[in-house]
């Protein structure tokens, strides 16, 4: 059985309470709820996690459409994992902090060799001064900093060891022929790069 419920205009805790009552009925496998605020969505995400149902949410302008689906055939641990990942994504979003975004292998424009070494100096100074950005993201020719033969890799490794995420755009790594030279766990995609940049408290570009 599927149920639709319009919870707009209700104050907390009514939206989560009414949704919980529907989910308590095991014959209902899908609930589509319309809610007004982000707080409602976050509370429903917690409910979904505790009830081990999957959840998707879309922003429909001045309200949210939340779909909760009980997938009885799928193993529960997979769903649990999904919910945890959702929750982690949310936590990450809350404290992204500073992101350094490097989209070329030089700092500014000028004499090529000078500009390359200047970028190295920039990163080294940042590290020595004790700054630990949440992530250093590299795209386009910026991924060349990950070249094992280059001079910048040591400082990037220092950042990584200090807990910063050092990530290179996969498409770019492939384009510049660095595939196999950049560790797989330091390769990311444009989606993640977008998420980092859009949710960052501060973005430093070089």
């Amino acid at each position: 059985m599927e149920r639709q419920i319009d919870l707009r205009g209700l104050t907390c805790p009514e939206p989560v309470l009414r949704t919980k009552k529907l989910l308590d009925d095991k014959s209902i496998i899908k609930v589509e709820a319309l809610v007004e605020s982000e707080v409602n969505v976050k509370n429903l995400a917690r409910l979904a996690r505790s009830q081990k149902v999957s959840m998707s949410c879309s922003n429909e302008g001045d309200f949210y459409r939340v779909v909760l689906t009980r997938a009885e055939t799928e193993p529960l641990n997979a769903l649990e994992e999904l919910a945890i990942r959702e929750a982690q994504k949310e936590t990450n979003k809350q404290r992204v902090g500073t992101i350094v975004f490097i989209s070329k292998d030089t700092l500014g424009e000028g004499d090529r060799d000078f500009s390359v070494s200047l970028l190295n100096v920039f990163l080294q100074t940042m590290f020595d001064a004790g700054h630990r950005p949440r992530a250093i993201l590299m795209a386009n020719s910026g991924v060349k900093l990950m070249d094992p033969g280059g001079s910048t890799l040591p400082v990037l490794s220092n950042f990584a060891e200090a807990g910063c995420e050092v990530l290179a755009c996969g498409l770019c790594v492939e384009f510049y022929g660095l595939k196999g030279k950049v560790p797989a766990d330091q390769i990311t995609n444009m989606f993640s790069i977008c998420e980092y940049l859009m949710n960052a408290d501060r973005v430093i570009t070089a």
């Binding site: 989560v16 309470l17 982000e38 707080v39 509370n43 995400a45 917690r46 409910l47 996690r49 809350q94």
Partner: peptide
Amino acid sequence: LAQQGFVPAGAYGNRDSYKD
């Protein structure tokens, strides 16, 4: 109760205010 989503809006507000 928190696991089931009975979390007041103020808690999300605090989370946001003190995220850093």
